[in-house]
């Protein structure tokens, strides 16, 4: 009897340890709902949904990359490229503002993949180069002026602003992509090989998995996700400037890491990206609502501190998980 009780207890404990991100999120939400004025309002929730959707999509692509043991610093630049192209092409043929940026994103991702798998440059360096290069391209394409978006294509701006039964399209897109990503990672050969490659690349190779192809796909997915994030951004803003989406790669990486996916590769669940993305979205929202009078610097500071607290708590939880 006693043994049973302890085993249930240890089971529960291990479940709790593996659910650090979810618990953190729930705690944050409970606090926000009870203590933060206006947090519960439909408008605010919708806003959070819209905000997190863009970087959320990027984070999904990033999660694949990080699970495969790599990193992709170029997603911010790719998102900017996609946003620019979407704005540019909104007057062209139907679906042009979707297809063209998507193609550009996948191409950029493929270039990352080629640099990493064929030229054999470490992911960090290769995607850093792409981050610089693509951003340069965005500046050149933009020319002297910012590009105006959403004017000629009414339907395009719906992506960001449209709603169905109160749920913004953006959030639905994010949820849809997340669902597809979960299925891919769980039920396809490719999805599983991502884990194997991230866990031990040499082993994956010797097991006969197609490591190169897997990595190519991973970076192409990341490029595509970045492009989708960029399109959502383009449909949201009134004009696309070339320095748009700067630093998004860091947000995406942070979301992925907070969701419990290890930068070492091979460990974590794609579905948990949702928690990471929401944690990163809810924190600034809470702070903005609590400290309406203060300057934005102070808000940044508090956001940073809170983020630190989240990461610290999770590391404590994970530490216990590892040592026993």
């Amino acid at each position: 009897m006693k043994a049973d009780a302890t085993s249930i207890k240890s089971h529960a404990a291990s479940w709790i340890r593996s659910q650090g991100p979810l618990i953190t999120l729930v705690v944050l939400l409970i606090f926000a709902v009870m203590r933060v004025p206006g947090f519960r309002s439909a408008v605010n929730i919708t806003n959070i949904g819209k905000q997190v959707s863009m970087t959320g999509v990027l984070a999904i692509g990033m999660a694949f990359v990080i699970l495969s043991g790599g990193i992709d610093l170029s997603v911010g630049s790719i998102a900017a490229l996609a946003a620019l192209l979407a704005a540019r092409c909104s007057g062209e043929f139907f679906l042009a503002p979707i297809l063209i940026p998507l193609a550009a994103g996948v191409t950029a991702g493929a270039m990352n993949g080629v640099l990493i798998t064929r030229v054999k440059i470490p992911p960090f360096t290769a995607t850093l180069a792409m981050m610089l290069g693509v951003r340069g391209l965005v500046f050149i394409l933009a020319g002297k002026t910012a590009v105006v978006s959403g004017v000629s294509g009414q339907w395009f701006s719906k992506i960001a602003w449209g709603k169905w039964m109160g749920v913004p399209y953006a959030a639905m897109i994010f949820a849809g992509i997340l669902g597809v990503a979960i299925v891919i990672s769980r039920y396809t050969g490719f999805g599983r090989s991502v884990y194997a490659v991230g866990g031990n690349e040499e082993a994956a190779n010797m097991m006969g998995l197609r490591v190169t192809r897997c990595k190519m796909k991973v970076y192409m997915i990341s490029g595509a996700c970045a492009a989708i994030g960029g399109m959502m951004l383009a449909s949201r803003v009134t004009s696309v400037r070339p320095d748009i989406a700067v630093g998004w790669e860091l947000t995406a990486i942070a979301a992925v890491v907070i969701s419990g996916i290890s930068l070492v590769g091979g460990i974590g669940k794609i579905g948990h990206v949702l928690y990471g993305v929401l944690i990163l979205g809810v924190i600034p929202n809470i702070i903005n609502r609590l400290t309406e009078r203060q300057t934005t610097y102070a808000n940044h500071l508090i956001t940073g501190m809170l983020l630190l607290a989240v990461v610290l708590i999770q590391s404590r939880i994970a530490k216990k998980h590892n040592t026993h």
Binding site: A129, G136, P242
Partner: peptide
Amino acid sequence: HYSLILKA
């Protein structure tokens, strides 16, 4: 802008 590309 070209310096970014050149750096890459």
